[in-house]
Design a protein around this nucleic acid. Structure first.
Lengths: 217, 217
DNA sequence: ACGGCAATCAGTCACATGCCTTAATTTTGC
DNA sequence: GCAAAATTAAGGCATGTGACTGATTGCCGT
């Protein structure tokens, strides 16, 4: 049947993983909707042109599988980081806990990487945006970081808090994607390393979260 | 010949404009690459299924035309705003000059609007990203605002300035797109009005730009 | 009024895609 | 080992797409 996440034969999980990685790369380079399931299957070396359909169901399910695969890897890093910040009441610490797991993962993954560009596109594409945010809520560590950050900013009005949370998410996703794209293009990235990019992002996000709220008019 | 921007008959410019507006809507709702030229032509009421090809050349040229059309409208508002801030040395003033023209244009355009979502997608799609940034550089007012803002932050290192400029751009584009999407979905937007969203964005961006730069390690 | 020409319409063709069917091959449960 | 299930291979089919072609409409200046 359609591989629905249940453990299958080792060959099957290998091809699943191969398709996931191939698709992530193609999607990042050419665009999620611009790449057909057929192209993914063929690029993954599958003679069967319906390999994506067989293993995942459809493109949406493939996208979800890619996201889950990466989330799973980043989650470990998030838990590590979380252990070090837990109990802190400093905005910067919690912002760092939000940023560093992702950038560390990218740095550890060698070069080139594709996940950041893929994620930015998937989050922007109307067909997948809802799914992406939905998947993000499944991370316990991420939710704990969010509440920890909220606790550092008790005076922030609800609407401002919500707006800044959206902005923070947007900023993280697209900033790392921009750097990844620059690395892939060969154009000079604005930060020397993933660590430098992360620190710049943490500075900026901390400034954003702690910015004074001016009244309307 | 292919409508290349030169003034043609009134019927042609009318259909061109009709296609532009139809395409903007379809692209915003379903995704730029997910919508075919054929669908755009038909949705615009053109019996000819190659109307897009005839009037614009290809999808990339259509996207460019949409962007130019909106840029042109926003540019007027930018010049007005610019006249009021010119000479200021306050970061917040220049940030406001960056944000308000777009949000004002969206507020003035009635409801629903589609440009913000379209722009966010086009800027993220690898096939169009370069063109979008290229088009953005054609705005004299925008460039003056950028230099004005830079002048307010003379102590900022080059790399940090560049990184924050990218972040500011990303943040503006996607934040207004998020609000537009929320309006279209019927979900509660995090800001009550375009003005409120703009002020929240200005607060956040000002905080981001003026955030202290911490050294690495 | 009328002839030229831009603009629109209508139909066609080659091609890629998603989905389906069938067969071959590998893995698993017993 | 062996039968059954799972996986991969291979090809076909209907549909949608971009590009091309020729016919038709309607506006323009003379």
């Amino acid at each position: 049947m359609t591989g629905n996440g249940v453990e299958r034969t080792s060959r099957a999980v290998a091809t699943r993983q191969l398709i996931i990685e191939t698709a992530e790369r193609l999607f990042a380079e050419r665009g999620v909707t611009a790449v057909s399931n057929r192209q993914v299957s063929e690029a993954a070396g599958q003679g069967n042109n319906t390999a994506v359909g067989y293993h995942f169901g459809g493109k949406a399910d493939l996208v979800r599988a890619i996201v889950r695969d990466r989330h799973q890897r980043v989650e470990h890093l998030r838990e590590e980081t979380l252990a070090q910040v837990r109990g802190s009441v400093t905005v910067r610490d919690w912002v760092a806990a939000l940023v560093l797991p992702t950038t560390r993962h990218l740095a550890d993954s060698g070069s080139p990487t594709w996940f950041a560009r893929f994620a930015a596109q998937a989050a922007t594409e109307p067909a997948f945006a809802a799914m992406i945010t939905e998947e993000a809520l499944n991370s316990p560590a991420l939710n704990e970081i969010r509440t920890g950050l909220d606790a550092c900013l008790p005076q922030l009005p609800r609407s401002v808090r919500q707006q800044r949370a959206e902005m923070a998410r947007t900023l993280m996703v697209h900033t790392v994607a921009d750097r990844e794209r620059a690395l892939a293009d060969g154009t000079e990235p604005s930060a020397e390393s993933w660590d430098a990019a992360a620190h710049g992002l943490i500075d900026a996000l901390t400034g954003m979260w702690t910015a004074p709220v001016t009244p309307l008019h």
